[in-house]
């Protein structure tokens, strides 16, 4: 009886790591959005851009499927 079980729909979760994380770009992503999710601050998007200069030429141009390195902050 699932009705007996508590509701966990408002649970927030996340993960931080001392290792470099690999983030796969999804449709609708921007570096600001990823920075907000990963670092808690959209303004940190340049950290992601700089860490991925080998595959990114423009911080406004990312594509689904790209795998970005997210350095520990």
């Amino acid at each position: 009886m699932a009705e007996d079980m508590p509701d966990f729909s408002d649970v927030n979760s996340g993960v931080e790591s001392t290792a470099v994380k690999i983030y796969e770009v999804k449709s609708g992503d921007s570096l600001s959005k990823i920075a907000k999710a990963e670092y808690g601050n959209a303004n940190d998007y340049m950290l992601i851009f700089e860490a991925n200069r080998d595959i990114l030429k423009d911080p406004n141009m990312i594509h689904p499927g790209q795998k970005l390195k997210i350095l520990p902050k």
Partner: peptide, 13 residues
């Protein structure tokens, strides 16, 4: 997904 280069700690919350 991590790209580990040695010992690391991942903290899930």
């Amino acid at each position: 997904t991590i790209a580990a280069t040695g010992p690391a700690v991942s903290a899930f919350h």
